[in-house]
Amino acid sequence: MDVHLNCWNETDELKCVVVCGPSEIDVPDQQTADDVQWEKPVSQDKARENHQVMVSVMEQEGVKVIDYSDYLSSKDNMIHKQLINRVFVRDLGCVFGNKLLPGEAGTSMRRPEYVMSHLLFNKWFDSSTFPIEANDSVQALEYGDVLVLNKDAVFINTGLRTSMTSIQKMKEEIFNAGFSEIGVIDLPRRGDTMHLDMNGNVVGKNLFLAKSYMRFFPVQMVDEHGEHYEMMEQFLNRHGFKVIWTADVKPDVRDTVANLNFLNLNPETLLISSKVNKKIFSHHSVLKKKKLIEVDVTELEKGGGGIRCMTLPFERQP
Protein backbone atom coordinates (compact mmCIF):
# COMPACT_ATOMS: atom_id res chain seq x y z
CA MET A 1 0.00 0.00 0.00
CA ASP A 2 1.58 3.25 -1.15
CA VAL A 3 0.72 5.34 1.90
CA HIS A 4 2.93 7.46 4.14
CA LEU A 5 1.54 7.13 7.66
CA ASN A 6 1.67 10.56 9.29
CA CYS A 7 -0.71 11.89 11.96
CA TRP A 8 0.49 14.23 14.71
CA ASN A 9 -2.81 15.96 15.44
CA GLU A 10 -6.49 16.00 14.48
CA THR A 11 -6.44 19.06 12.21
CA ASP A 12 -3.65 19.00 9.62
CA GLU A 13 -4.78 18.54 6.02
CA LEU A 14 -6.20 15.06 5.55
CA LYS A 15 -4.47 13.28 2.68
CA CYS A 16 -5.47 9.64 3.15
CA VAL A 17 -8.26 7.96 5.11
CA VAL A 18 -9.49 4.39 5.53
CA VAL A 19 -13.19 3.52 5.49
CA CYS A 20 -15.35 0.42 5.16
CA GLY A 21 -18.69 0.18 3.40
CA PRO A 22 -21.76 -0.86 5.43
CA SER A 23 -22.88 -4.42 6.00
CA GLU A 24 -25.25 -6.22 3.66
CA ILE A 25 -27.62 -7.13 6.52
CA ASP A 26 -30.48 -4.82 7.51
CA VAL A 27 -31.35 -4.19 11.15
CA PRO A 28 -35.08 -4.66 10.55
CA ASP A 29 -36.89 -3.45 13.67
CA GLN A 30 -36.46 -1.64 16.98
CA GLN A 31 -36.24 -4.82 19.03
CA THR A 32 -33.33 -6.03 16.90
CA ALA A 33 -31.70 -2.58 17.12
CA ASP A 34 -31.97 -2.71 20.91
CA ASP A 35 -30.52 -6.23 20.99
CA VAL A 36 -27.45 -5.25 18.94
CA GLN A 37 -27.13 -1.93 20.83
CA TRP A 38 -28.04 0.30 17.89
CA GLU A 39 -30.29 3.32 18.21
CA LYS A 40 -32.78 2.51 15.43
CA PRO A 41 -33.50 0.02 12.63
CA VAL A 42 -31.30 0.49 9.55
CA SER A 43 -31.78 -0.10 5.84
CA GLN A 44 -28.34 -0.97 4.52
CA ASP A 45 -29.31 0.19 1.01
CA LYS A 46 -29.85 3.67 2.42
CA ALA A 47 -26.72 3.33 4.56
CA ARG A 48 -24.63 2.50 1.47
CA GLU A 49 -26.03 5.56 -0.31
CA ASN A 50 -25.05 7.72 2.67
CA HIS A 51 -21.60 6.16 2.78
CA GLN A 52 -20.93 6.66 -0.92
CA VAL A 53 -21.85 10.34 -0.67
CA MET A 54 -19.50 10.76 2.30
CA VAL A 55 -16.67 9.07 0.38
CA SER A 56 -17.33 11.16 -2.74
CA VAL A 57 -17.22 14.40 -0.78
CA MET A 58 -13.87 13.50 0.78
CA GLU A 59 -12.47 12.58 -2.63
CA GLN A 60 -13.69 15.89 -4.06
CA GLU A 61 -11.69 17.59 -1.30
CA GLY A 62 -8.54 15.80 -2.48
CA VAL A 63 -8.49 12.99 0.07
CA LYS A 64 -7.37 9.50 -0.96
CA VAL A 65 -10.06 7.13 0.37
CA ILE A 66 -9.24 3.44 0.89
CA ASP A 67 -12.07 0.99 1.57
CA TYR A 68 -10.14 -1.80 3.22
CA SER A 69 -12.89 -4.35 2.58
CA ASP A 70 -12.01 -4.15 -1.13
CA TYR A 71 -8.69 -5.83 -0.28
CA LEU A 72 -10.01 -8.72 1.80
CA SER A 73 -10.02 -12.22 0.37
CA SER A 74 -13.32 -13.63 -0.88
CA LYS A 75 -13.25 -16.08 2.01
CA ASP A 76 -12.87 -13.32 4.62
CA ASN A 77 -15.50 -11.19 2.90
CA MET A 78 -18.11 -13.93 3.27
CA ILE A 79 -18.37 -13.15 6.97
CA HIS A 80 -17.01 -9.61 6.90
CA LYS A 81 -19.86 -8.25 4.76
CA GLN A 82 -22.29 -9.51 7.43
CA LEU A 83 -20.64 -7.57 10.29
CA ILE A 84 -23.03 -4.73 11.01
CA ASN A 85 -20.51 -2.57 12.91
CA ARG A 86 -17.77 -2.76 10.28
CA VAL A 87 -18.44 0.79 9.06
CA PHE A 88 -17.01 2.18 12.34
CA VAL A 89 -13.36 1.84 11.34
CA ARG A 90 -11.98 4.47 13.73
CA ASP A 91 -11.80 1.91 16.53
CA LEU A 92 -9.59 -0.58 14.65
CA GLY A 93 -6.32 1.33 14.91
CA CYS A 94 -4.75 4.75 15.26
CA VAL A 95 -1.80 6.43 13.58
CA PHE A 96 0.46 7.95 16.22
CA GLY A 97 3.03 10.01 14.36
CA ASN A 98 4.36 7.59 11.74
CA LYS A 99 3.23 4.39 13.44
CA LEU A 100 -0.10 2.56 13.18
CA LEU A 101 -1.03 0.83 16.44
CA PRO A 102 -3.69 -1.91 16.54
CA GLY A 103 -6.74 -1.68 18.74
CA GLU A 104 -8.56 -4.44 20.59
CA ALA A 105 -12.33 -4.88 20.50
CA GLY A 106 -14.15 -4.01 23.70
CA THR A 107 -16.98 -6.36 22.75
CA SER A 108 -16.77 -9.82 21.19
CA MET A 109 -19.27 -8.88 18.46
CA ARG A 110 -16.63 -6.65 16.85
CA ARG A 111 -13.61 -8.93 17.23
CA PRO A 112 -13.67 -10.47 13.70
CA GLU A 113 -13.28 -7.10 11.96
CA TYR A 114 -10.28 -6.26 14.15
CA VAL A 115 -8.58 -9.56 13.30
CA MET A 116 -9.22 -9.32 9.56
CA SER A 117 -8.26 -5.65 9.23
CA HIS A 118 -5.08 -6.12 11.25
CA LEU A 119 -3.96 -9.06 9.15
CA LEU A 120 -4.51 -6.90 6.09
CA PHE A 121 -2.61 -3.95 7.56
CA ASN A 122 0.19 -6.37 8.38
CA LYS A 123 0.52 -7.06 4.64
CA TRP A 124 0.56 -3.35 3.82
CA PHE A 125 3.17 -2.21 6.36
CA ASP A 126 6.34 -3.59 7.91
CA SER A 127 6.55 -4.50 11.58
CA SER A 128 8.24 -1.24 12.61
CA THR A 129 5.34 0.73 11.12
CA PHE A 130 2.51 -1.59 12.15
CA PRO A 131 3.51 -3.81 15.10
CA ILE A 132 0.63 -6.26 14.88
CA GLU A 133 1.66 -7.97 18.10
CA ALA A 134 1.43 -4.76 20.16
CA ASN A 135 -2.13 -5.57 21.26
CA ASP A 136 -1.42 -9.18 22.24
CA SER A 137 -1.79 -8.45 25.96
CA VAL A 138 -4.39 -5.70 25.53
CA GLN A 139 -7.92 -6.46 26.73
CA ALA A 140 -9.97 -3.55 25.34
CA LEU A 141 -8.75 -0.50 23.42
CA GLU A 142 -11.05 1.10 20.85
CA TYR A 143 -9.57 4.19 19.23
CA GLY A 144 -12.79 6.17 19.18
CA ASP A 145 -11.56 6.76 22.73
CA VAL A 146 -8.37 8.45 21.50
CA LEU A 147 -7.61 11.99 20.32
CA VAL A 148 -4.09 12.88 19.16
CA LEU A 149 -3.79 16.45 20.41
CA ASN A 150 -0.30 17.44 19.24
CA LYS A 151 3.25 16.12 19.00
CA ASP A 152 3.44 15.91 22.80
CA ALA A 153 0.09 14.71 24.08
CA VAL A 154 -2.58 12.09 23.53
CA PHE A 155 -6.03 12.17 25.19
CA ILE A 156 -7.69 8.80 25.96
CA ASN A 157 -10.93 7.77 27.64
CA THR A 158 -11.08 4.62 29.71
CA GLY A 159 -14.70 3.64 29.87
CA LEU A 160 -17.18 1.27 28.29
CA ARG A 161 -14.86 -0.04 25.55
CA THR A 162 -11.32 0.83 26.71
CA SER A 163 -9.60 -0.28 29.91
CA MET A 164 -6.90 1.42 31.97
CA THR A 165 -4.98 -1.85 32.02
CA SER A 166 -4.88 -1.81 28.23
CA ILE A 167 -3.66 1.79 28.14
CA GLN A 168 -0.86 0.85 30.52
CA LYS A 169 0.07 -2.05 28.21
CA MET A 170 0.13 0.23 25.14
CA LYS A 171 1.72 3.35 26.65
CA GLU A 172 5.31 2.44 25.74
CA GLU A 173 4.31 2.02 22.10
CA ILE A 174 2.77 5.50 22.19
CA PHE A 175 5.86 7.00 23.84
CA ASN A 176 8.11 5.23 21.34
CA ALA A 177 6.05 6.77 18.53
CA GLY A 178 7.21 10.19 19.72
CA PHE A 179 4.66 11.35 22.29
CA SER A 180 5.58 12.29 25.83
CA GLU A 181 2.29 12.43 27.72
CA ILE A 182 -1.03 10.60 27.88
CA GLY A 183 -4.04 12.18 29.56
CA VAL A 184 -6.60 9.59 30.67
CA ILE A 185 -10.19 10.52 31.52
CA ASP A 186 -12.78 8.05 32.84
CA LEU A 187 -16.21 8.94 31.42
CA PRO A 188 -19.55 7.38 32.44
CA ARG A 189 -20.18 3.94 31.02
CA ARG A 190 -23.29 4.56 28.94
CA GLY A 191 -24.23 4.21 25.29
CA ASP A 192 -24.18 7.97 24.71
CA THR A 193 -20.74 8.24 26.32
CA MET A 194 -19.30 5.07 24.79
CA HIS A 195 -16.24 6.77 23.26
CA LEU A 196 -14.35 9.99 23.86
CA ASP A 197 -15.21 11.33 20.39
CA MET A 198 -18.92 11.20 21.27
CA ASN A 199 -18.25 13.72 24.04
CA GLY A 200 -15.54 16.06 22.76
CA ASN A 201 -13.50 16.85 19.67
CA VAL A 202 -10.67 19.05 18.49
CA VAL A 203 -12.03 21.81 16.27
CA GLY A 204 -9.14 23.77 14.81
CA LYS A 205 -5.58 23.85 16.09
CA ASN A 206 -6.28 25.51 19.44
CA LEU A 207 -9.92 24.77 20.27
CA PHE A 208 -11.59 21.83 21.95
CA LEU A 209 -15.37 21.47 21.91
CA ALA A 210 -16.74 19.36 24.76
CA LYS A 211 -19.93 18.40 26.53
CA SER A 212 -20.19 20.58 29.60
CA TYR A 213 -20.35 17.78 32.16
CA MET A 214 -16.73 16.90 31.33
CA ARG A 215 -15.47 19.97 33.22
CA PHE A 216 -16.03 18.02 36.45
CA PHE A 217 -13.73 15.12 35.52
CA PRO A 218 -10.07 14.80 36.52
CA VAL A 219 -7.51 13.54 34.03
CA GLN A 220 -4.81 11.07 35.04
CA MET A 221 -1.53 12.20 33.51
CA VAL A 222 0.78 9.37 32.46
CA ASP A 223 4.33 9.95 31.27
CA GLU A 224 7.65 8.15 31.45
CA HIS A 225 8.36 9.64 34.88
CA GLY A 226 5.15 8.70 36.65
CA GLU A 227 1.55 9.77 37.10
CA HIS A 228 -0.40 12.71 38.55
CA TYR A 229 -3.83 14.33 38.15
CA GLU A 230 -5.15 17.52 36.60
CA MET A 231 -8.65 18.68 35.77
CA MET A 232 -9.58 18.30 32.11
CA GLU A 233 -9.55 22.01 31.27
CA GLN A 234 -6.18 22.48 32.98
CA PHE A 235 -4.71 19.60 30.96
CA LEU A 236 -6.00 20.95 27.64
CA ASN A 237 -5.04 24.55 28.44
CA ARG A 238 -1.50 23.43 29.20
CA HIS A 239 -1.30 21.95 25.71
CA GLY A 240 -2.53 25.14 24.06
CA PHE A 241 -6.25 24.39 23.75
CA LYS A 242 -9.09 26.63 24.81
CA VAL A 243 -12.11 24.55 25.83
CA ILE A 244 -15.54 25.52 24.55
CA TRP A 245 -18.26 23.92 26.67
CA THR A 246 -21.46 23.10 24.79
CA ALA A 247 -23.68 24.63 27.49
CA ASP A 248 -21.94 27.97 26.92
CA VAL A 249 -22.68 27.90 23.18
CA LYS A 250 -26.45 28.22 23.19
CA PRO A 251 -28.81 27.07 25.95
CA ASP A 252 -31.11 25.44 23.39
CA VAL A 253 -28.46 23.30 21.68
CA ARG A 254 -28.94 19.71 22.82
CA ASP A 255 -25.82 17.56 23.14
CA THR A 256 -25.83 14.90 20.42
CA VAL A 257 -23.26 12.59 18.87
CA ALA A 258 -23.67 14.35 15.51
CA ASN A 259 -22.78 17.75 16.99
CA LEU A 260 -19.38 16.54 18.16
CA ASN A 261 -18.50 13.61 15.91
CA PHE A 262 -17.18 15.58 12.94
CA LEU A 263 -13.96 15.17 10.93
CA ASN A 264 -11.34 17.89 10.43
CA LEU A 265 -10.43 17.87 6.72
CA ASN A 266 -7.91 20.66 7.29
CA PRO A 267 -7.48 23.50 9.81
CA GLU A 268 -10.26 25.53 8.16
CA THR A 269 -12.70 22.82 7.04
CA LEU A 270 -14.97 20.39 8.88
CA LEU A 271 -16.92 17.50 7.44
CA ILE A 272 -20.16 17.49 9.45
CA SER A 273 -23.42 15.59 9.59
CA SER A 274 -26.60 17.16 8.24
CA LYS A 275 -28.01 16.58 11.75
CA VAL A 276 -25.54 19.01 13.36
CA ASN A 277 -27.13 22.00 15.04
CA LYS A 278 -25.03 24.72 13.40
CA LYS A 279 -25.64 27.09 16.31
CA ILE A 280 -22.80 25.22 17.96
CA PHE A 281 -20.40 26.84 15.46
CA SER A 282 -22.03 30.28 15.27
CA HIS A 283 -21.13 31.98 18.54
CA HIS A 284 -17.31 31.83 18.53
CA SER A 285 -15.20 34.16 16.40
CA VAL A 286 -12.96 31.34 15.15
CA LEU A 287 -15.72 28.78 14.63
CA LYS A 288 -17.74 31.25 12.59
CA LYS A 289 -14.97 31.25 9.99
CA LYS A 290 -14.94 27.46 9.56
CA LYS A 291 -15.93 26.03 6.21
CA LEU A 292 -18.62 23.44 6.96
CA ILE A 293 -19.18 20.66 4.44
CA GLU A 294 -22.42 18.92 5.26
CA VAL A 295 -23.30 15.32 4.34
CA ASP A 296 -26.37 13.25 5.10
CA VAL A 297 -25.26 10.21 7.09
CA THR A 298 -28.57 9.80 8.93
CA GLU A 299 -28.97 6.10 8.20
CA LEU A 300 -25.38 5.37 9.24
CA GLU A 301 -25.74 7.33 12.48
CA LYS A 302 -28.54 5.00 13.61
CA GLY A 303 -25.77 2.53 14.45
CA GLY A 304 -24.70 4.84 17.26
CA GLY A 305 -21.68 6.57 15.69
CA GLY A 306 -20.89 9.52 13.47
CA ILE A 307 -18.55 10.72 10.74
CA ARG A 308 -15.42 10.55 12.87
CA CYS A 309 -16.30 6.99 13.90
CA MET A 310 -16.51 6.03 10.21
CA THR A 311 -13.10 7.39 9.18
CA LEU A 312 -9.55 6.28 10.10
CA PRO A 313 -6.95 8.87 9.05
CA PHE A 314 -3.70 7.43 7.72
CA GLU A 315 -2.02 10.62 6.58
CA ARG A 316 -2.25 14.29 7.50
CA GLN A 317 0.16 16.95 6.26
CA PRO A 318 0.68 20.51 7.60
Rank of each mutant, 00 (worst) to 15 (best):
D145C: 02
L292H: 07
Y71L: 12
D255K: 01
D70F: 00
S108K: 15
K81E: 14
E24N: 03
Q82S: 08
S73G: 07
V95I: 08
L72H: 07
K275S: 13
A177M: 04
G97P: 13
V42F: 02
L265D: 13
K171A: 10
A153D: 10
Q60G: 12
V154S: 05
V276C: 12
D152I: 00
T256I: 02
L300A: 02
K123S: 10
Y71F: 15
F235R: 05
E181L: 07
A153L: 09
V148F: 05
D34G: 00
T162I: 05
K288W: 00
L141S: 01
L72M: 11
E142L: 05
H4T: 14
L236S: 02
M170L: 13
N206H: 14
N122Q: 14
T269I: 10
M58P: 12
Q44K: 08
T269M: 10
D29P: 10
K250Q: 06
A105M: 09
D76R: 06
K15M: 07
R86Y: 06
D252S: 12
M58T: 04
S73C: 04
M1F: 10
E59F: 03
N77C: 04
V19W: 06
T256F: 02
T107C: 03
Q52N: 14
S273W: 07
L265K: 12
F217H: 11
S166G: 08
S163F: 04
T246K: 01
L312H: 09
P102L: 05
N259W: 03
Q30H: 03
E49D: 14
A134P: 04
R316H: 09
K275L: 14
G183K: 05
F208M: 13
P313T: 09
L120A: 08
A33I: 11
V17S: 07
S274E: 14
K171T: 04
Y213L: 02
E133L: 01
S128H: 06
M54K: 10
W38M: 15
G305L: 06
K290C: 08
V257Q: 13
I132L: 07
E268Q: 11
Y229F: 12
P188I: 00
S108D: 15
K75G: 00
H195E: 11
Q234M: 05
G103H: 06
L5I: 04
N266V: 01
A47G: 09
S43Q: 09
S108N: 14
F314M: 12
F125D: 09
E61N: 14
E181Y: 00
V249S: 11
L300I: 14
T269Y: 10
Y143W: 13
E10D: 08
V87H: 08
R111G: 00
G191R: 11
R238T: 09
V17L: 13
F314G: 03
H225S: 13
K288P: 01
H283W: 01
V249L: 06
T193M: 12
K242S: 12
C20T: 07
V65N: 09
R90H: 06
F96R: 08
I244W: 01
I272C: 12
S163H: 10
K169C: 05
R190Q: 15
D145E: 06
D192H: 12
T311D: 10
Q220D: 11
F281T: 05
I167H: 01
V65L: 11
N176L: 12
T162Q: 10
L141W: 03
M78S: 10
E10K: 06
D252G: 00
E294K: 10
F121G: 02
Y68I: 14
L101P: 04
L160T: 03
Q31H: 07
